[in-house]
């Protein structure tokens, strides 16, 4: 089932897999899904903020993309094209969702385990700073949270964000800039309050 991963010792390119999938090879498309499922799911999660909705949106996006493969432009980049379709599926679910959970920090230890262990005091301070930043993000309006999340937590570039949001690149750039300015303002206020308290 993994025969599409390599040919002559190298992984198949997206274009090769797409060509095979267009010809009806499901295993080729399965490999494409495997390549992008983490990013697609993370992007969908940032839009819908619900694990099950994100799973359904990502899967729906992959199925829709498969149906649309015949219209995929040869030579184009598959990743932003796919992300746009997944994001459309997620946005449709987001619109009908009754509520969305706030973004939260992962419980447990610092995932950067390769670094030298910080002192208990430094670790506590870093955790407090992260919690404050998380609170500041969650206090922003949803549009601002989404654009910041896509940029920094899905690590999308401006062009990909434009695809995901269905907006011109310039519009996305200015939206991100304004969202960052509002975040900076809220964060400074929160940190002033904490230092005063």
């Amino acid at each position: 089932m993994y025969g599409w991963q390599e040919v002559e010792g190298r992984p198949l390119t997206d274009a090769e897999l797409i060509e095979a999938a267009r010809g009806g090879d499901v295993s080729a498309y399965e490999e494409l899904v495997r390549r992008y499922q983490d990013l697609a799911y993370r992007t969908a999660f940032l839009v819908v903020r619900d694990a099950e909705e994100a799973r359904d949106a990502a899967q729906e996006g992959f199925l829709s993309a498969h149906r649309a493969l015949g219209r995929f432009r040869v030579g184009a980049d598959f990743r932003p094209w796919l992300l746009r379709i997944v994001a459309n599926a997620a946005r449709n679910r987001r619109r009908s969702a009754t509520r969305r959970a706030a973004l939260a920090l992962r419980a447990g230890r610092d995932p950067a385990s390769g670094d030298a262990a910080p002192s208990p005091e430094a670790a506590l301070l870093a955790a407090e700073q992260r919690a404050t930043l998380m609170a500041a993000i969650n206090s922003l309006r949803e549009d601002d949270q989404l654009v910041i999340g896509l940029r920094w937590f899905a690590e999308l570039g401006e062009a990909e964000m434009a695809e995901v949001l269905g907006r011109p690149r310039g519009t996305v750039k200015s939206r991100l800039s304004r969202a960052m300015a509002r975040l900076r303002e809220v964060l400074e206020r929160l940190e002033e309050d904490l230092s005063d308290g």
């Binding site: 498309y29 899904v33 799911y41 999660f45 899967q59 992959f62 610092d110 995932p111």
Partner: peptide, 16 residues
């Protein structure tokens, strides 16, 4: 690295 995003489910096999 600290954002709590659930691990992606095995979408590839489900889609296939």
């Amino acid at each position: 690295a600290f954002i709590d995003v659930p691990a992606a489910p095995p979408l590839a096999s489900a889609v296939a």
